[in-house]
């Protein structure tokens, strides 16, 4: 293991792209403003100079077509990384993502797989209002044929991309906008990580806090606060929303007998609903309390800072939910 280096989430994503481009000539990055502008969130800054216009490919504002072109290019033997600027813009490409990427393998009886990676920014917190701030990863996790990744840590930001590119099927990676500036240390030789398992980020015996993406750090903070009250919370980072690692969830709940699901997405029909349902199906007799949920308020994300924050899960809400599950 080499010396840990100081880095950021943004830098981890960039280095993951760089490494993939160097390792595999079939890999290229395509999307709006990825080249000359350097990426809306500056992830791809500098890559155009290093790899050229063929492989760092600026596109017009044609989400449906360039996503579909990514699918076609994948069918044709390349390994495209399609960047969609923000999750709300991906709705313009839903036709290609769902009608083609997710269905072609099955619809063709196994003849054509689609080894495509789509990255996009997700989530709220930058006061970008209702057309740039939603958390729709749970919605994509509804779709058979897709894999849905939500890297929250530097290690996952650095390591999930290569594994996703090696996957024979379409993989969507959701990068929470509030994570890009997050800094920390990472092994200089950090490499690919699995895209199949949830991870226990903090062990505890009293209550399981199940979360992913941008909400992970609020949840870890809530676990610190709970510890001050003598409550040992276990924090599970789901990492992958589809396929969901139900075994790790159930094992954690079986240890703690209580569960709180924290999801920035909306409550109705979302990730938290799915996880609560699976706990009911597979761990009902392990529970000592009803499953609690802390979710995004069911409104379009508003602009004003106080309203935006009020629409999102917060540390106090997570702490309160954990206490409720313990009857305190």
């Amino acid at each position: 293991m080499s010396q840990p280096v100081e880095t950021t989430y943004r830098e981890c994503v960039k280095q993951a792209i760089r490494e993939a481009m160097i390792r595999d000539q079939r890999v290229f990055l395509m999307g709006e403003d990825v080249g000359h502008y350097g990426g809306c969130y500056a992830v791809s800054k500098g890559l155009l100079a290093e790899f050229g216009e063929e492989r760092i490919r600026d596109t017009p504002l044609s989400e449906n077509a360039f996503t579909g072109i990514g699918i076609g290019a994948a069918l044709g033997g390349l390994r495209p990384i399609v960047e969609i600027m923000t999750v709300n813009f991906s709705f313009l490409a839903l036709d290609q993502i769902i009608n083609n990427a997710a269905t072609l393998l099955h619809m063709s009886g196994g003849a054509f797989n689609v080894p495509l990676v789509i990255r996009m920014a997700t989530g709220a917190g930058r006061q970008l209002a209702a057309q740039h701030s939603h958390s729709m990863e749970g919605w994509y996790a509804h779709i058979p044929g897709l894999k849905v990744l939500t890297p929250a840590t530097l290690e996952d930001a650095r390591g999930m991309l290569w594994t996703a590119l090696e996957d024979p099927d379409p993989v969507l990676i959701f990068e929470h906008v509030m994570l890009y500036n997050r800094s920390g240390t990472l092994a200089a030789d950090a490499g690919p990580v699995d895209i199949a398992k949830a991870a226990v980020r903090r062990e505890g015996s009293d209550v399981s806090l199940l979360t992913y993406g941008g909400a992970l750090y609020k949840t870890l903070e809530a676990a610190d606060k709970l510890a001050e009250e003598g409550i040992a919370a276990e924090v599970v980072d789901l990492r992958v929303l589809r396929p969901l690692d139900t075994a790790t969830i159930v094992a954690s709940v079986a240890r703690t007998r209580r569960a709180v699901v924290i999801d920035e997405g909306w409550r109705s029909g979302g990730v938290s609903a799915e996880i609560a349902a699976r706990i009911m199906e597979q761990a009902f007799w392990e529970l000592d309390a009803p499953v609690e949920r802390v979710c995004g308020l069911e409104v379009p994300i508003p602009y004003a800072a106080h309203l935006e924050q009020a629409a999102l899960p917060q540390v106090e809400g997570i702490v309160a939910a954990a206490r409720r599950s313990l009857g305190r």
């Binding site: 360039f66 579909g68 072109i69 699918i71 076609g72 290019a73 044709g76 033997g77 390349l78």
Partner: peptide, 14 residues
Amino acid sequence: LPLAAGLALAHKMR
């Protein structure tokens, strides 16, 4: 149509 353009992009880049 996008699939066709994508397949063609693969042909061209390869």
